[in-house]
Design a protein around this nucleic acid. Structure first.
Lengths: 239, 239
DNA sequence: CCCGAAAAATCTGTCGACAATCTGCGTCGA
DNA sequence: TCGACGCAGATTGTCGACAGATTTTTCGGG
């Protein structure tokens, strides 16, 4: 009916490698985690296609990858929707996280190189400095540094599969949950203390102690955060 | 060159739901695990498209999911290839498996229902019967029943994320490795004995013992299988 | 006979289009 | 007035086609 005007950019140079799908995946992932796309929102393929200026092909693949990462849910005919938060899922994440990060801490204590150790020390030093300097007025006392600490340990474990599972699947979901629970300030000092104990165990080359401290750290984090999702909070957060 | 005969089914009705992609994923997954597609083989999209009688769209999505499951590797310009086996990857799988299945056994011992328990007993009974009856002449003494046992425990753990990680990611890779190492007969009796110990611990509602037995079971399995991938065996299996 | 370069063929990444289906709304009947 | 039926709009799943790049083949030279 109406004139179909090609409003696309001149496309002087398409990336031409598999970058479009990955860029879409990353942008959508960030948009979901940062809350720009609300939880439970419907992700219409044509709408996103027009919004990001790409066709539906790469967008579909990006949505599929988001589904594998458990950031969106697809129902066969209804399309894709951003996942809703639930206390059950949160508990499951922390259960798996405790097992996997315990393994990571143990492996790191067993075979961490000096370079990774120095990086870990630097991260922890920054966390302690942030705590001393800023006092309490940072919204989340550690910012993204808590994530950095755990990622560094996962990487130092030298297990590619473990790194992929933690950084690819779990940490993204965890960021999603944390971004919705940002009123959680106060555990920063305790968390840094526990980080210090973990690092000490790794420096002592004590795998058992490192794993135990890590598991305890994660269990404590769950105990602190879980009540915020407790009584029917999942519904509140979903809508 | 040759006549291209359309060997597709009459297609009286396309499934019309998201079944094509899932069917392709399942068929390709089985083909790779059963060794019908050799390790390291290049997966040409047009060739598979013609072979399975579908367009490249769903096939691409299936390949993406296979990549997420770590059954194929995609390089930005070269296309998709079946993964090659390596002793390092095998060790990583078993490391993660020990952590996750240890969690599964502990959770199962903590909260396994009577129905799941009965199913687990039935599986173990079949394993023991298979060992008594067939003697030693089965190629892999347990067939697929070892997998069934571990899947049942994972399901009984009641952790959806854990089930997805184990059944979706790890067990598929594990089946790939086992299908290439099928000359491993002999550990069946020992494995069933260890399964019995795990089940006993679960029936006793002893989570610590269940986790410990499971981890020991998996570590023993790794010790038995790892030498087959040891000195430059990865190259042999890859090509 | 072997090596290097150009051209052809093939393949990946991407795009637009079509059939089948589901959602929402208007209309008709009880 | 309320509920059921039917139609229009939009959306998903799938398909064929095109631009860019890579690999292979082939041709010419040393």
């Amino acid at each position: 009916m109406e004139e179909i005007v090609d409003t696309r950019a001149p496309e002087v140079s398409l990336p031409a490698d598999g970058a479009l799908e990955r860029a879409l995946f990353q942008r959508l992932s960030e948009a979901i985690i940062r809350g720009e796309i609300p939880l439970g929102a419907k992700l219409s393929e044509p709408a996103l296609s027009r919004q990001y200026g790409v066709s539906r092909g790469p967008l579909r693949e990006a949505l599929n990858r988001l589904e594998e990462r458990r950031l969106v849910e697809r129902t066969p005919r209804l399309g894709a929707r951003v996942v809703s938060l639930s206390a059950t899922t949160f508990r499951e994440i922390y259960g798996v996280r405790e097992a996997l990060e315990g393994l990571a801490a143990r492996a790191a204590a067993h075979a961490m190189g000096e370079a990774d150790l120095a990086r870990l020390r630097a991260i922890l030093a920054r966390q302690e400095a942030s705590l001393e300097g800023d006092g309490e007025h940072a919204p989340n006392a550690l910012g993204g540094m808590d994530e950095d600490f755990h990622v560094a340990i996962a990487r130092a474990a030298g297990n590619g599969l473990l790194i992929g599972l933690l950084c690819g699947d779990l940490y993204q979901q965890l960021r999603l949950y944390r971004s919705q629970l940002r009123k959680v300030a106060g555990r920063g000092r305790r968390a840094v203390t526990e980080h210090r104990r973990i690092l000490d165990a790794i420096e002592d080359r004590d795998p058992e102690m490192a794993e135990w401290q890590m598991r305890r750290h994660i269990a404590a984090s769950y105990t602190a955060l879980a009540p915020l999702l407790g009584p029917a909070a999942s519904e509140d957060l979903a809508e």
